[in-house]
């Protein structure tokens, strides 16, 4: 059964399964050890290499493969970044990093919603929040700032020296998380196409400021697992994501929606505006009512409001001689053949008013009766009435018999 429809085939909200969106994806690291090779790391030797691909590969318990940065002198704090492209918009639930080195003392997490063009802060970890990131430490979260990055001194402890974790839960402590369906702010907050982690300061054993001799041991960053937990963003209109013809990740849209995130209605399905599905209402896109006489329609907000938010579609280019918002009546010069349904291609018949006997070309919409000149009769005004005979004048085609 399709999760996007219930047992009565009625639409209902559906979401793709929860996944580690980072798994198997490429990570761009600003620094990786092994070029040139050192005693611990050689990029050209698979047994001694620590490439970024180890961040998102399959990790078995007890067999963690670790990415590792270059080694830096301890008196020279270096920013090292890991950038992960998710390939499309995801609704991110958490970002986690499991370290093979000691956890950094300061870490910043950023997200992009436009495939890496712009970045916004997502979360900061530091014992010096104000100095490094200009943020107060452990600020209280309110509805006014729940879509802003916070800074905390949690997860910054040096210990454990290996295997330490940083885990950022995107909705944790956000007041509107309980009413996520009705919070466009948080729906936006969890949306990301890319995640970037920047290690800003290492944890150094000993004194950072005094131990600056040339032969003092340096430091490096090393991470075994970079996870981004979440769901492919489909706005409640798809239960799975797959690759399109160009190999791009896209939602398998239902409810008459389309787009990478099912973020618009299909053509001809704009009888009401696009909306995200929620637990109460699937908000599927509805086809315009055009009685099979039009292939295109447009949405009119005024009409939608006037209808009590039921129908706002306006049919375009009504065919088969029909007219009107729903192609529901016959255009001028045609009349309704009541023996056929309005959906019939021949529901509208030509008035066929006589060029001489009729006073005009437009007939009665329901009966088809043309307006006849004096003394003329018939549906199309093509005969003289009883007591009249044809004259030679096209202005008065029938005259009274003397």
């Amino acid at each position: 059964p399709d999760p996007c429809y219930d047992e009565n085939s009625l639409p209902r909200r559906c979401v793709p399964e929860f996944v580690n969106a980072a798994f198997g994806k490429e990570v761009q690291a600003s620094s990786t050890c092994g070029r040139p090779s050192t005693r611990q790391c050689d990029a050209s030797d698979p047994k001694r290499a620590h490439p970024p691909s180890y961040l998102t590969d399959l990790n078995n318990a007890g067999n963690m493969t670790c990415w590792r940065s270059e080694s830096f002198p301890r008196h020279s704090p270096q920013n090292v970044s890991l950038t992960l492209s998710l390939g499309k918009k995801f609704e991110v639930t958490y970002v986690s990093l499991q370290f093979c080195s000691p956890r950094p003392e300061s870490v910043a997490i950023y997200k992009s919603m436009d495939y890496g063009k712009t970045w916004v802060p997502y979360q900061f970890y530091s014992s010096q929040c104000r100095r490094l990131y200009g943020k107060p430490s452990r600020a209280s979260v309110t509805k006014q700032n729940e879509q802003e990055a916070l800074c905390t001194d949690g997860y910054t402890d040096l210990y454990p020296l290996t295997g330490g974790l940083i885990a950022f839960s995107t909705l944790d402590g956000r007041p509107s998380a309980q009413d996520f369906d009705n919070s466009p702010v948080l729906q936006d907050w969890v949306t990301a196409t890319d995640i970037r982690v920047v290690f800003s300061r290492p944890h150094l054993q000993g004194n950072r400021d005094t131990d600056v001799s040339e032969d003092a041991p340096g430091y490096f960053y090393s991470v075994g697992e970079f996870q981004v937990g979440g769901r492919c963003k489909c706005n409640g209109h798809a239960s799975r994501c797959g690759k399109d013809k160009e190999g791009r990740l896209v939602c398998d849209c239902k409810h008459n929606t389309e787009g990478p995130e099912c973020d618009r209605c299909k053509a001809f399905h704009y009888d009401r505006p696009w909306q995200r599905a929620n637990a109460r209402e699937a908000n599927e896109c509805l086809a315009c009512t055009c009685n099979l006489h039009a292939r295109r329609c447009r949405f009119n907000m005024e009409l939608y409001k006037l209808s009590g938010r039921k129908s706002g579609g306006v049919c375009l280019n009504c065919r088969h001689n029909t007219a009107g918002r729903h192609c529901h009546y016959c255009k001028e010069g045609f009349y309704r053949d009541v023996s056929r349904p309005i959906t019939d291609r021949r529901a509208c018949k030509a008035c066929d008013c006589h060029p001489v006997g009729a006073a005009g070309k437009t007939c009665n919409q329901t009966t088809g009766q043309c307006p006849c000149k004096d003394g003329v009769t018939g549906l199309t005004c093509n005969r003289c009435a009883k007591g009249y005979q044809q004259s030679r004048s096209p202005i008065a085609p029938c005259i009274k018999i003397p």
């Binding site: 005969r383 009435a385 044809q390 096209p394």
Partner: peptide, 23 residues
């Protein structure tokens, strides 16, 4: 009684050439 349909050939269009329908 059904009357005959109007016979277009019987009309004299001399003064009404601009009203004459295409045939």
């Amino acid at each position: 009684e059904v009357m005959p349909t109007l016979d277009m050939t019987l009309f004299d269009w001399t003064d009404y050439e601009d009203l004459k329908p295409d045939t």
